[in-house]
Design a protein around this nucleic acid. Sequence first.
DNA 1: TTATTAATTGTCAAAACGACAATTAATAAT
DNA 2: ATTATTAATTGTCGTTTTGACAATTAATAA
Lengths: 232, 232
Amino acid sequence: MIEYSGQPHYLVAVDCIVFGFDGEHLKILLVKRGLEPEINKWSLMGGFVGANESPDDAANRVLKKMTGLEGVYLEQMQIYGEPDRDPIERTLSVGYFALIDIHKYEAQLNDDYEAEWFLINDKPKLIFDHNQMVADARKKLRYKAALHPILFEMLPKKFTIPQLHILFEEVNDTKIDTRNFSRKITSTGLLIKLAEKDKSGSKKGAFYFKLDKKKYSANAQAFLNLMPNLKV
Amino acid sequence: MIEYSGQPHYLVAVDCIVFGFDGEHLKILLVKRGLEPEINKWSLMGGFVGANESPDDAANRVLKKMTGLEGVYLEQMQIYGEPDRDPIERTLSVGYFALIDIHKYEAQLNDDYEAEWFLINDKPKLIFDHNQMVADARKKLRYKAALHPILFEMLPKKFTIPQLHILFEEVNDTKIDTRNFSRKITSTGLLIKLAEKDKSGSKKGAFYFKLDKKKYSANAQAFLNLMPNLKV
DNA sequence: TTATTAATTGTCAAAACGACAATTAATAAT
DNA sequence: ATTATTAATTGTCGTTTTGACAATTAATAA
């Protein structure tokens, strides 16, 4: 077989920043690294890109293996390719961020990997450039969520406006006026009000909503301006 | 030296979609590929990522080598990593899009590479998945330009509102109302009106403007909503 | 029956938007 | 010198969106 002569070859990996929301705070899922170097240190979920898969395939495989979940929201972020980012040998890594319903995951708990949820603001130091990856992912999540209805991916199928409200505040690390938020989020036409109420959080109870799947997929690419005073 | 045992290694390349604007139409810069396979076919500017450089470094190096330009606007797009995208051996490529002032480039013409500008809507078939890369880059350019003031990168330091207007129409492939466009673009506060006029295009002449560099860098990350009826 | 708590709904002025056409500044032609 | 021509520039107005602000409602607990 012909090869491009003399060019160096590298390992290519994927690393996933997995975001979840417990109803109060934004969290990320970390695992204890299973190989040297830095074994047993906290790290992002990752793995090498196999011979017969694309990086996207690899990211989905890694997520499936470590969380049991399929079909999760997964978005390519950027490539991390500084020559010395991995001390063993040159490895380029494609960073992905994933949004999952934390409760779905809990049902799938897999202790094989010592995965653990951490508050985004209270996570341990990670290996290599993974801290930078998390910072970048957070920024990108904020950016994307300001324009596109993606945060729903972190909520159950049935959710309330107050839940959504808190999630938006968490992601953007800011306070959002309840009235304006409610007006804006309902005016997207993406929500369908259900008859049922969630009474776990208050006496009055909050109505459940679900996503209008049709409008959701139709608007997945639309700009929505979901944040007041939109600045990034 | 330790290595991660048994993992496959791949070539990693960069490919650059270079956009330019000739005052009328959006163009891309293509080169005739200099190596087998598909030698002499039109392709994007690209090259392999060297042992001591990051993909970003490589992209800048390739651009410098092929256009003579440094410090051009360059943005990482996404990675292209289907296992069979290169018929010779597995190569992953990081796609970049670049915005350059077409006139700066013309002053640097380097015939060594048989580079040539093509109308974005009238380009030859490209090798491998480069056609897809161009389509993706165009989409991303449109997206980014709708929110951030980046199209200035394709204009000379002194430019007129009508020039900018045509450029926006080209990028978005749509007609934009002159009055509303002018109002919106000036209300960003990014433009400084000069005393001089460009009389090449009309009897009346159009005033030159230049970028307010300070406000430009301050607003590089701001959302500006530069397109009417913002949809992507 | 009342107190309590959180969800929900309402108002209003300012700004932004989008659709629309008239005026102006220069040159060329008469 | 006057007029015609051409493209740049500026203006209006009704509608919609925004953002700042507080009162009301629905349930449970006391």
